[in-house]
Design a protein around this nucleic acid. Structure first.
Lengths: 155, 155
DNA sequence: GGTGAAAGGTCATTAAG
DNA sequence: CTTAATGACCTTTCACC
């Protein structure tokens, strides 16, 4: 299920203009409309993630982002993750190298909210130690464009 | 520029079915099509991020995710970030609390690629010390749904 | 390529802050 | 009085087979 250069160019065109139509993309790339149509249908079930990825938590009233690393008692990993999943502010959970460590991305309304949130996190059963780093600025906003541009030039 | 419950419900409907049409969403929510149309137009310039956010790097051939924290000599922050931005595999850069520290999200094709990548990162001018944590599993995939559901029930 | 369907625009009316 | 939602109409444009 590899991505070829045309797939990448289609995705880049949509990145330039998220509201571009299938026909518009086809014209821009100089290919048949049906080609783009078939490609997008396939891409939608492979490389495209849900619409929720386009929603910016900051614009929802949660401007603070923090990364919290947790030490978990290895016996209760599953239970701990289930507990964390019940907190809406926990946006993402990764199991990281090192033993029984989790890395969370959390969002909060303000610093007071973040403080209460970290307290709730450390109270989740199985959580042993926590260490959080607040994101002061997103110096480089999440991007996939450079990867797509590289794929678009390949062959 | 706050989000009201109807906005949240529109976004949730699109999260359920990313290909839903404006009219479809309107029917589902029991509101007029023009309402959804006007809301989406406004949301597109406030809470919705670019299409690139929907592209999954893993599906592009970069299945490895790692979080790299860097110590930067404070005088050369700008220069360091510029250098990092030239690496396509660097997906995200945050300035974090603590002094002159950066947190990066990077992707790689395999462990060998990741090894070379971290070497290139530490060679970026201004970078002093690096510490990376590989994501073994994404236990909780990035989500905004719980936040939207909370907003949808408010008021 | 043809056809059914939706987008996008405008407007007058109505409701609510 | 201002902002927003609504329903109606229209034309253009697209997705799908």
């Amino acid at each position: 299920m590899a991505i070829d250069p045309l797939d990448a160019r289609i995705l880049l065109a949509l990145d330039d203009d998220p509201d571009a139509t299938t026909l518009g993309v086809a014209r821009r790339l100089g290919v048949a409309r049906n080609t783009v149509q078939a490609r997008l249908k396939r891409l939608a079930t492979s490389v495209l993630r849900g619409f929720g990825q386009r929603v910016d938590p900051a614009a929802l009233g949660y401007p603070l982002v923090a990364f919290v690393s947790l030490r978990i008692s290895q016996s209760s990993q599953v239970q701990a993750v289930a507990g964390l999943a019940e907190l809406p502010e926990v946006i993402e959970v990764h199991a990281t190298s090192g033993d029984a460590d989790l890395l969370l991305r959390v969002v909060a309304r303000d610093t007071a909210h973040l403080y209460r949130l970290t307290n709730r996190i450390t109270n989740v059963p199985g959580v042993q130690r926590s260490d959080s780093a607040i994101s002061l600025t997103e110096l480089l906003p999440a991007r996939t464009r450079p990867l797509l541009e590289r794929l678009a030039q390949e062959q």
